[in-house]
């Protein structure tokens, strides 16, 4: 843990609530954490509120959802009181987010190059030539061997792994301080997952960014991050050091860990997580 005098992001008592006709759904409850220029993993199962946490930080809780918090401060800027304009400035320029599936998260009728240029020009006064050069350099940085060609392709013309690398390029072209990666490899083939992760890993280290890595893959998160928040039913059950995951205290975390199949010893049947209603309380 690298503690800086001023943390990059402070979240205190954040709640995300969706008012539905069938009643309120509390997607995130009493979430608090502090982040430096480090890697924080958020794990949890589907619907545990991990993705909504990422969106809420960016102020992108989709309607009819609302986000409230006692404190939400990014690098000294109070995001709760910031104007829409200020928030827009921060989005993309200082905080960026890589989403799950490039098939849906890229605009289908814009070329990949145009989408990267758009991200760059949204925050930099730059001409066509300069923006293009930046986009091409960024495509090269995510290990696309033929940036000139990929620049002019449409999202449906590239593979999932290539699309996700383009997405990473688009989000990092403005050199943000914090990257939220929302299950960046879940939609990809297992064979390309590792490669995309390695690229992400390198770029985050190189640029000294803070990273919030959202995933349901506990071992992956523990190998990738410094600290891990374990979420369940919208609440943080516990915070553990990634290297210490084996010694997690909470029965949910331990249960999850035990459910993982192992190549070394054959466990039959695999243990099933015994849920305690108390956890969600």
């Amino acid at each position: 843990m690298t503690d800086t005098p001023r943390p990059l992001l402070e979240v205190e008592n954040m709640n995300v609530c969706f008012r539905m006709q069938s009643g309120d759904v509390e997607a995130v409850r009493n979430m608090s954490f502090t982040l430096g220029r480090e890697r924080l993993g958020i794990v949890g199962e589907s619907g545990s509120g991990k993705s909504q946490t990422g969106r809420a930080i960016l102020g992108l809780t989709p309607p009819p959802g609302t986000m409230t918090a006692d404190r939400l401060v990014f690098d000294g800027i109070d995001l709760l009181r910031a104007s829409r304009r200020k928030l827009r400035d921060i989005r993309g320029k200082r905080i960026a987010m890589v989403m799950q599936d490039p098939k849906y998260s890229l605009n289908p009728i814009m070329t990949i190059g145009a989408q990267i240029v758009e991200a760059y020009q949204a925050h930099n006064r730059a001409g066509a030539k300069e923006s293009r050069d930046h986009a091409l350099a960024m495509l090269e940085a995510v290990r696309i061997h033929d940036p000139q060609r990929v620049y002019d392709l449409y999202p449906h013309e590239v593979s999932g792994g290539m699309g996700q690398r383009a997405m990473i390029a688009m989000m990092l072209v403005t050199n943000p301080d914090l990257l939220i990666a929302d299950e960046p490899t879940s939609a990809l083939d297992v064979t390309v997952q590792a490669e995309v992760l390695r690229i992400l890993d390198e770029l985050v280290s190189e640029r000294g960014m803070g990273l919030i890595f959202i995933s349901h893959d506990l071992p992956l998160v523990s190998s990738f991050c410094n600290r891990v928040l374990v979420m369940y039913a919208g609440k943080v059950l516990e915070e553990v050091d990634a290297c210490n995951l084996d010694n997690a205290k909470h029965p949910y975390t331990r249960g999850l860990y035990r459910c993982l199949p192992s190549l070394k010893c054959d466990v039959k049947p695999l243990p099933v997580l015994q849920r305690d209603p108390q956890w969600a309380a």
Binding site: R88, D101, I109, E118, H123, M170
Partner: peptide, 29 residues
């Protein structure tokens, strides 16, 4: 409601650009 609109928001684009350049151009199809 598509995901690429969220992407556009994350990029910090103006609402006008998101609506007219991204969403409407796709709705043209």
């Amino acid at each position: 409601s598509q995901e690429y609109i969220t992407t556009a928001r994350v990029k910090g684009l103006s609402e006008a650009r998101i609506i007219w350049r991204h969403a409407l151009r796709n709705a043209f199809v």
